[in-house]
């Protein structure tokens, strides 16, 4: 059965985003939440975000500076987290 997995990207963005891409390898439904800051525009981060987009991994952020990621308030993200089986803050 497909599981719903939420990954919350916090202070260690690069590893969290890499995990977000890798998490789809078991055919689960992955959603990535970028919390509290703008994603550093490193080559790896941009590539991982692009891969997520290509693979239909949904991304949300509570930081409006991430203009290419759908914005949700922290309260809305809190509500949304209740939909997931595994919630993994990184």
């Amino acid at each position: 059965m497909q599981k719903k997995i939420a990954i919350l990207v916090r202070d260690r963005q690069a590893e969290a985003l890499r995990m977000g891409v890798g998490a789809m390898l078991a055919d689960d439904l992955i959603t990535v939440f970028v919390m509290d800051g703008k994603v550093e525009e490193s080559e790896n981060n941009m590539m991982n975000l692009e891969t997520m987009n290509d693979m239909d991994i949904k991304t949300y952020t509570n930081c409006k500076e991430n203009s290419n990621i759908e914005y949700l308030s922290t309260e809305e993200i809190a509500q949304k987290l209740l939909e997931f089986d595994n919630i993994l803050p990184y």
Partner: peptide, 18 residues
């Protein structure tokens, strides 16, 4: 291993803590 092992852990385990 690799992130594949992580993905499998998340898929197979009832609860996952960090």
């Amino acid at each position: 291993g690799s992130q594949f092992d992580n993905a499998n852990m998340n898929h197979d385990c009832d609860k996952v803590i960090v």
